[in-house]
Amino acid sequence: MIVMDEVVLFNPGDSIGNFHDYHEAVQTAQIYQERHSQDGHVLVVKSDKGEPSFDIFLAEQQLDNGQSKFKPAKPYTISKKL
């Protein structure tokens, strides 16, 4: 079975946090999820360009291609969904 990465668009300004360490990003996302469970799914995403960088976003902040015309959007690959 081949697993395809899911690339999504987010406005970088909507990021809850930015980390260079994946495990620190996941731990922070888990803490955020526990404290803000009403906010929905929390995603840890990896930037598709540059050095390893992980951001935390709420799933509801995901942009589709139509919305990306109105906001500065950047592609990310989902690393973990909480």
Score class of each variant (00 low, 15 high):
Ile31Leu: 12
Gln61Lys: 12
Asp21Tyr: 03
Asp39Glu: 15
Val7Met: 03
Ile56Pro: 04
Gln30Leu: 13
Asp5Val: 04
Gly66Pro: 00
Gln67Trp: 04
Ser79Phe: 01
Ala59Val: 01
Ile31His: 06
Tyr22Cys: 01
Leu82Glu: 02
Asp14Asn: 14
Val42Arg: 06
Ile78Gly: 09
Asn11Met: 13
Leu43Trp: 15
Gln62Asn: 04
Val26His: 09
Asp55Met: 12
Ile2Leu: 05
Ala73Ser: 15
Glu60Phe: 04
Gln38Asn: 10
Gly50Ala: 06
Ser15Asn: 05
Leu9Cys: 10
Leu63Pro: 07
His23Pro: 00
Ile16Gln: 13
Val42Met: 04
Gln67Ala: 15
Lys46Leu: 01
Glu34Thr: 08
Lys80Pro: 00
Pro12Ala: 09
Lys69Val: 09
Asp39Ile: 02
Asp64His: 08
Ala25Leu: 04
Gln67Val: 04
Glu34His: 11
Asp48Lys: 11
Gly13Arg: 15
Lys80Asp: 10
Leu58Lys: 06
Ala59Pro: 01
Gln67Asn: 07
Val7Tyr: 00
Asn18His: 10
Glu24Met: 06
Ala73Asn: 08
Ser15Glu: 05
Gly66Phe: 07
His20Gln: 08
Gly13Leu: 14
Ala29Thr: 10
Gln27Tyr: 05
Gly66Asn: 13
Ile2Lys: 10
Asp5Arg: 05
Leu43Arg: 11
Glu51Pro: 01
Ile56Glu: 10
Asp64Ile: 03
Asn65Cys: 02
Ile31Ser: 08
Arg35Lys: 11
Val3Thr: 12
Gln30Tyr: 10
Gly17Ala: 13
Asp14Trp: 15
Phe19Gln: 02
Val45Asp: 11
Gln61Phe: 09
Pro52Asp: 09
Gly40His: 08
Asp64Asn: 15
Pro75Leu: 02
Ala73Cys: 07
Leu9Pro: 03
Pro72Asp: 08
Lys74Val: 10
Gln61Arg: 09
